[in-house]
Amino acid sequence: MISLHLASIGQTKAHQYVVRFLVGGLCTVVAGVIGKHWGPLVGGLFLAFPAIFPAGASLIESHEKENKKKIGQDGRTRGRLAASIDSAGAALGSIALIVFAITSWLLLSIRSAASAILIATLAWVVTAVLLWQLRRHRIFRGI
């Protein structure tokens, strides 16, 4: 069952939010600079750069370690496993990212930019959720 775990917001330290904001902003600027210098074909590659992924996965590991520490256990293995599960989710998300890119590529030529980007975003959401449901029910039931 999908749920919101709002307590996680409090677990994330202020500097971790700042780091993600800075990395996200920096990667967007770099993607733009690369596009300007080498053109859209090279610049476009960086629209799918795993900018925030290392920081996000590392954060999940540290949250898991902290939770285990509270009950006096060593959470290193558990932390890595949680990050691994998060990465497996990101693998499904990246298939949806391919769908996003194909959709926006095809629609930007024939529709308004706003509708093309909106439809591509919806395609990402639908594909990601469908793939997650498929994996949950057929392959990794119980995770």
Binding site: S8, G56, S87, A90, G93, L97, A101, R135
Partner: peptide, 17 residues
């Protein structure tokens, strides 16, 4: 904030940039 972790992981590959 989303759970389970495998679902939250999807957002690691969101088209943010």
């Amino acid at each position: 904030v989303l759970r389970p972790k495998s679902f939250a992981g999807l957002f690691g590959a969101a088209p943010s940039i």
